[in-house]
Structures are given as C-alpha cells and as structure tokens.
Design a protein around this nucleic acid. Sequence first.
DNA 1: TAGACATATGAACAATCATTCATATAAAGG
DNA 2: CCTTTATATGAATGATTGTTCATATGTCTA
Lengths: 119, 119
Amino acid sequence: MAEIKNEHRECGGMNIEKVKMLENEIHGAEEAYELSELFKVLGDSTRLRILFTLEKGEMCVCDIVELVDVTQSAVSHQLRVLKQARLIKYRREGKSVIYSIADDHVKTIIDMALEHVNE
Amino acid sequence: MAEIKNEHRECGGMNIEKVKMLENEIHGAEEAYELSELFKVLGDSTRLRILFTLEKGEMCVCDIVELVDVTQSAVSHQLRVLKQARLIKYRREGKSVIYSIADDHVKTIIDMALEHVNE
DNA sequence: TAGACATATGAACAATCATTCATATAAAGG
DNA sequence: CCTTTATATGAATGATTGTTCATATGTCTA
C-alpha cells in the first residue's frame, strides 16, 4: 500500500480519501476494459445500422445486405463482430441464416444513447 | 422510388414492406453515424476510466492523472476528446482546470451498459 | 520579470480496424 | 454429382487512432 506522493505537486485537489478511490480504480479497471470493448463494437455506423435494421425483426443476411446497402462480405464480417459481442444471435434455416437482436438489453442501450444524441 | 430488385435472389426473406423499411434506413443513416461517433468516444478504456473517476466528483487534471495512472499528456488529449463529445465540462480555477461530468445523461448510459456487461 | 507549476497541443509512430477481393463452405435442386 | 444460391472467411490495404515526446501556453508567486 504505497503512500500518496503529494510532494510532487502543489495544486492539492483530492487527498484524504485518495487511497480508497485508488482501490476503486483498480477494481474498475477491468470493468472499464470490458465496457470499452462493448462500446467499441457499437462505435461503427455500419454495425449500428445492422442493429437498427434487426430491431424491426429477425431477418436473413441478404435482407440486411439490401437494407443497409453494404457488400455481402462486409455485412458478414460485421455480423461476426456483433455475434462475438453477444449483441445478436442466429439460427440456420435452409440456405439462409436468420439473425436477430440477442436481448432487450441491447435495445435499451441504443435507445438511451439515442436520447443523448437527439437532445 | 426504385423497384425492389428481387430478381437477383431467391431466399425471399422480407419483401412487401421493404420499401417503407428502406426509407426508414435512409432516415436512420445519419442517426446511426452520430450515434457511432458517441460510442466511439466511449469505446476506449482510458476515457471510460476518466469518466468513472469523474463520476465520483469534479477534479483537476493532476488528480485524474494520478487516479487513472496515465501520462499527463495522454490524459489531456483524452479530456479533449471527451470535451468535444460534450460528455464532460470544465472550468479554470487558478492554475488548475477542474473537470466534471457534463450531465446525468452520461451516467445513465454508462450504468446501462454496465448492467449488460455484468449480467 | 523570471521561474515554477498546471495544462494543452503538434508531430510521429505503432497498432487497430473496416472494407474489398478472391475464395471457401454449406445447403438445396435438378 | 454438378450447379446455383446463401453465407463465411482469409489476406491485403488504406484509414483512423492512442500514446509518447517535445514544446507551448497559461497562471501564480517571489
């Protein structure tokens, strides 16, 4: 448990409870990393448009390709990213693969952020 | 209003209401872009840790530097990004610059996403 | 005004990432 | 089987981005 090294500065902002806060930070570091991974996935307009599209209901890849207007290859790559982040799920149906939003949690996050943007 | 080009495929997923949905997509494209910009900013663990730290209360740059344990320069660069995204605000106080969360909207978004991660 | 402290900024570099192109797998039908 | 349709994947590339280093700006005090 290292001492707070306040000898090196004079602005003296926080101090007394700094140790506790440091511990919180160590705890929150991993949490921050996981969270950032999630936001990174959401931080691409193509992926968001795929999610917007899927919010209207489940659909196959070729539908997504037409609606989002991106290469089939690009869509497929991005679907993989969304899949790995557990934001969407899929099932095979004949030749097609049907994708859909994983759970309502995802919708909530998107709607929340939309409010911030449209304020 | 172009015809839907379904001659080129046979899986026949969506069809009837496709035109309406296409219009929705055109509308949502800009929205998706703005949203992705917001998520991009949140999609970095350093920036998130800064936000986590600031959730505990306003503080000056040198406090953030100690708590987040990143170079002063790096912190300053990231504060600028957060500032431009209107996620944080600041005020000068003598030699120091005090930063704080812009509004409660930000906290809500973060807490929502945390629930998704910690499920 | 000179020097110390606090913060910001510009350039450079390494790493990450989205898209494209070519090709592979998978299923269905003839 | 062979072909067609639907989807996935690997490699390559161009663009974006986080950090570092050096330096600039701003503020206070002696």
